[in-house]
Design a protein around this nucleic acid. Structure first.
Lengths: 366, 366
DNA sequence: CGTTAGCACTCGGAATAATTGAGTGCTAAC
DNA sequence: GTTAGCACTCAATTATTCCGAGTGCTAACG
C-alpha cells in the first residue's frame, strides 16, 4: 500500500472513529470498540485489517502490541483538514460572551485578555492572548493631573483607546491651575500626531511658543513617551493555567510543571503562537511535531487572529495536548473571531439605535 | 507531663531542629537525624525521650509508628511565635525590589499586584494581593476623549491615582472641540469632590449653568460613576500559581487541583486573607487548623497590610503548605512592608533631590 | 475477493507476596 | 539523667504472579 495513496471513505470513517474515541477517552482505541461503539456494519476483524493499513500509512500507531491504536500527528492533521465538520454555534452562548466583552470593547489590550479568558473557559485548555503592539501609536488625548505640589500624573490615551499613566516628579513646585493650563498646551501639540513625529525640535518649539521652560516640559514629555512606548509593547496574557490539571495527560506533576514552565517562557510563546497553517477560516492549527519544537511535540496550538474594524488587534491561541478537542477549540475560536468582527460593524449601528441609559441610573448612586 | 507546661530550653532546641529539618526535607524527622545533623551533644535515645514528651504535649506527632515526627499546628505556632529569629535583609535584593516597584508607586492597584508578584517570587509560594477598595473615592481629574463622531472615552483619575476609562456611546453627533469644552466644564464640577456628593441635583445644576443638555450630559456622568465604582471595588490578584508544583506536598494532581480550586474561590479567599493574629510587626500568621476552614487545614497563610503615607492600600498574603518556610515568608513580607513605608516617606524627599531625567532621554526617542 | 469467526500469542497493568530499613519504645547498665 | 542494645512495627520498595484487552494470522464462507 503506497504511502501517498488517498484514504477511501471507509478508512476515513474508521480514522474518525478512532480519533473521536481517543479524544473522548484518552485510551488507545481497539478494533472491537470501533466496530461496536461506532456501528460500522463491519466485524472487528475487518476493522483490524483496515487499522493495520492505517498504521502502515502512518495515520495511527500502537503504543505496544496488546494495546489499541493512537492517532499520529498525520492522523490528527487529516482529521482536522478533511474530516472535521463545523460545529453549530449556540445563540445563548453568543449572548453570554457578548455581554462579557461588552465593556472591554474600548481597549484592545483588555479585549484580548478577556477573549483569552473566555477561550480558556470554553475549551478547558490554556489560552494565550498576544496583543499586536504597534510602534506607530499616536496620542489621542493627554492630561496632567496634580498629585501634590511637586508631582503630577501624566495620563495618555492613544489612538487604540488604551490608557496609560505615569507619575512624574518635578524639580520645582507647580500650581494645579498652571498644570491644567500646560495640559491643554501640550495636548494641542501631541493630539493626533504619531508618536515619533515629536522630536527635540518640537519640544523647543513648544517651549518657545508657550513660554513653558524646557526643563519643566521635559519630564512630562519623557513620561508621555514612556506611556506611548508601553502602549506599543505587545502584551502577553496567559489564561486558565489551572485548567491543565483537568486533563489526564498531566497525570504526573512533572509533565504539568514542564509544560507550565515552557508556557511561561515568553520567547518560546512567541514561537509557539507564530505558526501559520491557515485553514481558510483565519485559524491556524499546529499539531504535535509540526510545532517544530522538541518540547511541544505532545501539544497542539490553535491560533486565531482577531480583527476589529479591519485591523488586527492581536491573536488568541489555545494550547493543549495533541489529544485536543479540535472541534470545540476550532469552533470556539472561530465563533469568537466572527463575533468580534460582527460586533465591530454593529457598533456603528448600535449608536444610532439609542442607548438604554436613563435617569434611574443616577438615582441609585445618591 | 502537664499540657500547659512551658517548654524548657532543650525541648525548644529539639523542636526547632525538627521543624527546620522538616521544612527543608518534607520528610518526618527521626531522633537519629536530630542527634547527628543538629549536634546537640545528646544521644538519639535521649532525643527520643524528649520527642516522646513533645508528642505527648501536642507539639509534634508521628504519621505512623515507624516514621519520624512531624510538627503539629501547635508546634508551628510555637516555632513562629517563640523560636524564629528575624532574618537579616539583603541590600542587593532591596534594590532589585525597589526598582521593580519604582514606576508602580503611582497606582495602588498595580502596586499591590506587583507586590504580590514579588512576594510570590521571593517565597516560591502563591501570593494573593487584595486592594483596599474604598467607597469614598473622589475624582481628581477627568477627561472626555473623542473616539469617533458618536462615541467618546471617559477617563477618570481618582484620588488614589488610579486611572479608569470607559467608552460612551451617544445619541447625537458631537464635535471633538465641543467634547473638550465639556470635559473642562464637567471636570470643574467633579474635581476634588467625593463621588457620592454628585447627585441628580448637581446634574441639573451643571446642565443649567453650562447650557449642556441633560440628555447629553447623562451618559457621561453615568460612565464617570461606573469608573468610580470600579475604583472603589477591591481587586484580587493571585500570583504565582505555577509555583505550587514545585513543592512536594502537591505530589498528586488531585491535591494541587483541590488547592487551586479553593484559591480561585473569591469568597474563600476573603475568609483566608482576613485573619488577624498580629505578630506585632504588622504581620499575621494563620497556621493549618487555625484557619478555621476544613479545606485549609493543611495550609498556612501569612498576611501583611501594606501602607503608603499612613493609609492602608491593601494586603498581600502568602499561602502555602503548613510546612512553609516561615522565616523566609515572614521576613520577605516584613521587608517589603517596611520598604513601602520608607519609600513613601522618601518619596517626598526624593522630589527635592532633583530628578535624573535629562535631555538625552528624549534624544533616543526620535 | 472481501469479510468474518476462531485461536494462539503478546505484553502492560493490577493484584499479591516478599523484603527491606528507618524509626520506635523499652529495659538495663553506666 | 543519659545511653547502648534489642525486639518490634510498618510504610515503602521490589519481585512475582495473574489477567485480559487487543493483535495478527489462518481458514472458512458467500
Amino acid at each position: 500500500m503506497a504511502q501517498n495513496e488517498e484514504l477511501d471513505a471507509r478508512k476515513l470513517m474508521i480514522l474518525k472513529a478512532i480519533i473521536d474515541d481517543y479524544i473522548e477517552s484518552s485510551e488507545p482505541v481497539g478494533s472491537r470498540t470501533v466496530a461496536k461503539k461506532y456501528d460500522m456494519g463491519l466485524s472487528s476483524a475487518t476493522i483490524r485489517n483496515e487499522m493495520a493499513d492505517l498504521e502502515e500509512m502512518g495515520y495511527i500507531s500502537s503504543p505496544h502490541t496488546s494495546a489499541g491504536r493512537v492517532p499520529s500527528t498525520k492522523g490528527y492533521r487529516t482529521y482536522v483538514d478533511k474530516i472535521l465538520e463545523p460545529a453549530s454555534s449556540d445563540p445563548a452562548l453568543a449572548n453570554e460572551i457578548l455581554s462579557k466583552l461588552e465593556d472591554k470593547m474600548s481597549e484592545y489590550g483588555k479585549l484580548i485578555k478577556a477573549c483569552a479568558e473566555i477561550a480558556s473557559q470554553l475549551t478547558n485548555y490554556i489560552a494565550i492572548g498576544v496583543t499586536h503592539g504597534s510602534a506607530k501609536n499616536s496620542v489621542k488625548a493627554l492630561q496632567l493631573v496634580p498629585v501634590d505640589e511637586q508631582s503630577a500624573l501624566v495620563v495618555v490615551v492613544t489612538d487604540d483607546n488604551s490608557v496609560k499613566s505615569k507619575l512624574v516628579s518635578l524639580n520645582e513646585k507647580i500650581e494645579p491651575d498652571r498644570l491644567i493650563e500646560m495640559s491643554g498646551i501640550i495636548n494641542r501639540y501631541f493630539y493626533g500626531k504619531p508618536a515619533n513625529s515629536v522630536t527635540l525640535m518640537t519640544l523647543n518649539r513648544i517651549s518657545e511658543e508657550s513660554g513653558i521652560s524646557r526643563s519643566l516640559l521635559l519630564p512630562f514629555v519623557d513620561a508621555i513617551f514612556d506611556c506611548i512606548k508601553e502602549c506599543g509593547k505587545g502584551q502577553i496574557y496567559t489564561e486558565g493555567t489551572a485548567q491543565l490539571l483537568r486533563h489526564p495527560e498531566f497525570d504526573s506533576i512533572d509533565k504539568a510543571r514542564d509544560f507550565i514552565e515552557m508556557i511561561q517562557d515568553e520567547d518560546m510563546l512567541e514561537k509557539i503562537v507564530n505558526q501559520s497553517e491557515d485553514l481558510g477560516n483565519g485559524l491556524t492549527v499546529s499539531i504535535g511535531t509540526e510545532n517544530g519544537n522538541d518540547g511541544m511535540s505532545d501539544y497542539s496550538v490553535v491560533s486565531a487572529k482577531f480583527e476589529v474594524d479591519g485591523t488586527c488587534i492581536g491573536t488568541v491561541s489555545v494550547v493543549g495536548p495533541t489529544r485536543m478537542d479540535y472541534k470545540n477549540v476550532i469552533s470556539s475560536l472561530e465563533f469568537m473571531k466572527k463575533m468580534l468582527e460582527k460586533k465591530s460593524l454593529e457598533g456603528k449601528k448600535l449608536l444610532t439605535d439609542g442607548s438604554d441609559i436613563g435617569a434611574e441610573d443616577i438615582g441609585d448612586l445618591n
